[in-house]
């Protein structure tokens, strides 16, 4: 409970910062594709101090700092994969909204489709059996 208040407090402080200092940078790129890439990366990264927002939507300083870092790296020509793995090395898998596919998370990605296949089979079995009977 206290921790929630603490985290919300940090977020709140983040919001407060806007009243005192205007540090909103504009992240503009020369090329459209880079701009799109930037927007897409930001939408897939989680603000680590907020309840549930991506770094584009969040006002928290951490989120803005992350955006600044991504902006610099994209400008230098780093690939999206490299930028993401850099942030994961600093903040852990928690910062990615798209779960990585590894031995722990394969079930997460595979189960929906496995379940769909099982369900389709069961449906067919039930109705086909009935059709055969009658």
């Amino acid at each position: 409970m206290r921790v929630m208040v603490w985290i919300l407090g940090l977020c709140f402080l983040g919001l407060m910062s806007q009243k005192l200092i205007a540090l909103e940078e504009q992240f503009a790129f020369a090329s459209q594709t880079q701009q799109k890439d930037f927007e897409n990366i930001c939408k897939e990264l989680r603000c680590v101090t907020c309840p549930n927002q991506n770094i584009a939507e969040s006002h928290a300083p951490v989120a803005k700092a992350m955006q600044a870092e991504i902006y610099q790296r994209l400008k230098q020509g780093d690939s999206i994969v490299d930028i993401k793995s850099y942030l994961v090395s600093r903040y852990g898998d928690y910062v990615l909204y798209r779960p990585v596919m590894n031995q722990h998370t394969w079930a997460l990605w595979a189960l929906p489709f496995i379940l769909l296949a099982i369900g389709a089979y069961l449906w067919f079995a039930k109705f086909y059996v009935a059709a055969r009977k009658s």
Partner: peptide, 10 residues
């Protein structure tokens, strides 16, 4: 004991 996120992309 690992923290991860599952968000809109998933």
């Amino acid at each position: 004991d690992k923290k991860m996120s599952v968000g809109p992309p998933f």
